[in-house]
C-alpha cells in the first residue's frame, strides 16, 4: 500500500489494523480512551462485533476493549492492514 487511507474505527471490518491518528473527543471519555491505550500512534485491531452490530471490540495494547459507535466514530486512524 502506498497511499494511506484514513478511516474511523467504527468503519473498520473484522481483522483490520488501524494506526490511530486523531481522537476527536473531549473530557472524561477522551481521558478514559487514553487510559485504555487509544493514544496517538497506537495500533488497533478490529476484533469482534457484538450480535447487534454495536458495540465493537478492539484489540489495543494487548487487551480487548469494546466501544460504542458514538466513541469509535470519533477515533480516526490510518488503515494499515485490510482484514479482508
Amino acid at each position: 500500500m502506498t497511499r494511506t487511507k484514513i478511516i474511523k474505527l467504527v468503519d473498520g471490518e473484522k481483522g483490520d489494523i488501524i494506526k490511530i491518528t486523531a481522537l476527536l473527543l473531549d473530557g472524561v471519555m477522551r481521558r478514559r480512551l487514553l487510559d485504555l491505550g487509544f493514544v496517538n500512534g497506537a495500533f488497533v485491531e478490529v476484533a469482534q462485533k457484538s450480535p447487534l452490530g454495536d458495540p465493537i471490540a478492539f484489540r489495543v495494547s494487548r487487551t480487548t476493549i469494546a466501544l460504542r459507535k458514538e466513541e469509535s466514530g470519533k477515533i480516526e486512524g490510518e488503515l494499515i492492514i485490510n482484514g479482508e
Binding site: G27, L33, P55, T63, T64, I65, A66, E70, E71
Partner: peptide
Amino acid sequence: IPTHYTLELPP
C-alpha cells in the same frame, strides 16, 4: 447528563 462507555473483554 453525558455518557461514556468502555468495556474490557478479558481472555
